[in-house]
Design a protein around this nucleic acid. Structure first.
Lengths: 186, 186
DNA sequence: CCATTATTTCTCTCAATACTGAAATAAGTG
DNA sequence: CACTTATTTCAGTATTGAGAGAAATAATGG
């Protein structure tokens, strides 16, 4: 007789938090951060750190650090509650806004450092007169790709989300247009 | 007097492998896998597992498993070499093709399981008559978003890469069109 | 400015996972 | 069908990162 509930017996909300936390690992954020985010996403009122700690059963200090990380992603923000000293937090609940915030964060964490690294490599390569030109060329292609992807994602992120939503929902039409003249695999 | 070279003294190719390996962690693949991928990406001829093991100084067994993972991503493939029993590998060197393979892999590992999870939650939620409708609604919005993103990315991945390349490179024009009538942050 | 309560920092433990090296298996070869 | 060589599996080790709890700091109120 254990106190741990089988996931099949727990409520939809609890399940959501569990799954979301689990997926967090896959997405590069740790479980605590993902669980707290899920909890706040489904919460109908602001929560303070202690409430979160109690509800999820994770250490108060862990909650503190995780909240800081989520604020860094702008996925949650602090809200003052009248007559309460403690800090309260709410999540961004618009899923499109959320997606754009995550995309933004990923771009910063993934594309930007990749660009910095490749730039350094190519600077080094320029000092190597007997470097195989094929190798240099591959590096340059990678660099160019990253630059294009970088500019593209920056622009993508500046599109108003209502438009993005509309665009993606009518994706079929956009894409069939794009594929019209495309050759098979080139 | 150590044998470990300072990164500033190593060649551009070695630097690239080191940085790529390092970024791998950020991207969710381990260092060995990322380093092997980088090595093959810059290699002008097919390599066998032993060569890779020697060049990168990682265990032969580790190379074997990492190669399998890279083949799983379709980022490398086996090529037979006449008169050599050993398996040789080459990387996909087209950066656009590479990007699409990675996107494909990520969709499968990130979006697909997320969709499966949210579907289960909502199925559970339907059995809970006194679930706060706001919560149910948030879950449903998330579900709808994931479905849209899923369809959209599937379609994106089926666009011939030459077209995608052209589209992204002229991104400016596409996006300025999109933003024309957009309201500021809604 | 002391007392109380909230928050953060720090150190330690534990768990997850990367990696190694040996053993086992598989694939060729004479 | 033995013998060599290539590859994979497995079990143990090392490294990394998550998370807990105590200690330190900061904020607020009397």
């Amino acid at each position: 007789m254990t106190e741990i509930k089988d996931i099949n017996e727990s409520t939809a909300k609890d399940q959501f938090i569990l799954y979301w936390g689990d997926m967090g690992s896959q997405w590069g954020v740790n479980r605590s951060v993902a669980q707290i985010h899920a909890l706040l996403f489904l919460s109908t009122s602001p929560m303070n750190a202690e409430q979160i700690s109690d509800e999820l059963g994770i250490a108060r200090s862990n909650v503190s650090n995780s909240l800081k990380e989520l604020v860094g992603w702008k996925l949650i923000r602090r809200v003052p509650i009248a007559g309460d000293r403690r800090e309260h937090f709410v999540a961004e609940v618009d899923v499109w806004e959320m997606a754009m915030l995550i995309a933004q964060g990923r771009k910063e964490r993934e594309i930007d450092p990749a660009m910095a690294a490749i730039d350094m490599c190519i600077r080094q390569a320029d000092d190597e007169p007997n470097l195989n030109p094929v190798i240099l060329n591959r590096m340059k292609e990678m660099q160019e790709f990253l630059q294009t992807a970088d500019r593209w994602s920056s622009q993508m992120l500046s599109v108003p989300k209502s438009r993005l939503n509309a665009l993606m929902k009518m994706g079929d039409k956009v894409f069939s247009l794009l594929k019209l003249t495309g050759k098979k695999s080139e």
